[in-house]
Design a protein around this nucleic acid. Structure first.
Length: 421
DNA sequence: ACTCTGTCTCAAGACGGC
DNA sequence: TTGAGACAGAGT
DNA sequence: GCCGTCC
């Protein structure tokens, strides 16, 4: 998931694209959030039981998991009370090229399943916990639950035709939201104008969030959008392998020098840097047509492609396909986002009767939600001028930060020296 | 000296009471 | 699972 | 700030 090492690369090479801002500064903003990612986090983190017992999900009377509801409910209310209007974006069908990756995950999951069975047999609590975390997945059920919850809360929900990050980026580009809220750096590759990270409430009081600005990324790295996409592919994305021996530094250098992946492949010493076969399908075809194995035995639901298509698809280098996914990802275009008052009665019913939540707490929270909704619908919630003025002093700040970074770098170097000692 | 790879570790949500 | 950070070790 | 609870 995401682009390997991109966050670090940006903080090293294009520090001006990153800003630490107060949560308050997002007041009045609409933000698109990757729901599947959030749900997954909740399923992993929201558990009861101490270190000595089996950590278990929160559940209702029927034994169905409610951790994700708990997490989603709280967080959404928190967003609203902070004056942030969230829209949750759900994943659609993953793109075909991801299937290799998904098959691998599935195999791992099956292994974990077996390991869990063994651990239960042996009563190995620690192992059970480990394996059950490994099994966590935001399935259809959890997604449906959250969709229902959010709808009852009056929060808009968008189901992407494909990847949520791409859809969120599209919403942002269309000006329907201010930013994409995610930890997944993919969003930048999809060219979301603004990405907000750490949009969580870990440290309650001084909650700072991190924003990344796409234009400043391009500016800071001094490369074009197409080059940035190629760079991301070389760093490592979900859609294809990478060149062995080329990490972040080298990838950036190579892209700057040669402009695109084709030229890079032409130029580099391929004995030192191993280019994945899928990147040069023509060569494979030319010199040996012997071993053909494409993960047989695993389900491939739609085998309706005819031979002609399969052949040409195989001749397209993997990085070209990845590029296409980043640049021409399928998204919905004409969307209307509406924040409505919550359906208090049904919401309470859902949480209390179906999910077994505590009545008083639910009532309390619904009141909070309603108050927040009211406050947010008042006109002029956002004082743009105020923040626009604030933007200026920040230029000086970033210059200062650059200085500080340089100093830090120096310090780090001398530290290394003393350490090695 | 620099970069990449592999291995390890740890935490992962949000709230409230104390 | 992921990500980040720290560190060792190997390749250039 | 830590730690138990939420379901």
């Amino acid at each position: 998931m995401g682009i390997k090492g991109l966050a670090k690369l940006l903080s090293d090479e294009a520090p001006d694209c990153i800003r630490e801002v107060e949560l308050k500064s997002l007041h009045g903003r609409k933000i698109a959030i990757d729901a599947s990612m959030a749900i997954y986090q909740f399923l992993i983190a929201v558990r009861s039981g101490g270190p000595n017992q089996q950590a278990t999900m929160l559940t209702n009377a029927e034994g169905e998991t409610t951790s994700h509801i708990q997490g989603m409910f709280n967080r959404t209310i928190r967003y609203m009370t902070e004056g942030i209007r969230p829209v949750f974006v759900f994943d659609g069908k993953p793109p075909d090229v991801k299937s290799h990756e998904l098959i691998k995950r599935r195999e791992k999951r099956e292994k974990a399943q077996a390991a869990l069975a063994v651990a239960s047999e042996e009563g190995n609590v620690e192992e059970q916990d480990k394996q059950s975390k490994r099994l966590v997945r935001a399935g259809t059920k959890e997604n449906e639950d959250c969709r229902k919850l959010l709808t009852l809360m009056g929060v808009p929900v968008v189901t992407a035709p494909c990847e949520a990050e791409a859809q969120a980026a599209a919403l942002c580009k269309a000006g329907l939201v201010y930013a994409t809220g995610t930890e997944d750096m993919d969003a930048l590759t999809f060219a979301t104008p603004i990405l907000v990270r750490k949009l969580t409430f870990a440290n309650a009081s001084k909650s700072m969030v991190q924003t990344m600005n796409y234009n400043k990324v391009i500016e800071g790295l001094a490369i074009s959008h197409d080059q940035f996409v190629d760079l991301c592919i070389m760093l490592g994305c979900d859609y294809c392998d990478t060149i062995r021996g080329v990490g972040p530094k080298t990838a950036l250098k190579l892209i700057r020098e040669h402009g695109n992946i084709e030229k890079v492949i032409e130029t580099i010493d391929r004995k030192k840097f191993v280019v994945p076969e899928s990147w040069v399908p023509n060569e494979k075809k030319l010199d040996a047509q012997s071993d053909d194995d494409d993960e047989e035995g695993v389900e491939s639901p739609s085998k309706e492609e005819n031979n002609g298509i399969v052949d040409t698809e195989e001749l397209i280098p993997a990085y070209v396909q990845a590029r296409k996914l980043f640049n021409e990802h399928e998204v919905l275009n004409d969307i209307e986002l509406k924040w409505k008052p919550c359906q208090a009665e049904d919401l309470q019913k859902f949480l209390v009767d179906d999910m077994g939540f505590n009545v008083d707490r639910v009532k309390n929270n619904i009141e909070k939600l309603q108050a927040a909704y009211k406050a947010n619908s008042k006109p002029q919630t956002r004082m743009d001028s105020f923040f626009a003025v604030k933007a200026n002093p920040n230029a000086a700040k970033s210059a200062a930060k650059r200085k500080a970074d340089a100093a830090k770098a120096k310090a780090a170097v001398s530290k290394k020296k003393t350490k090695k000692h």
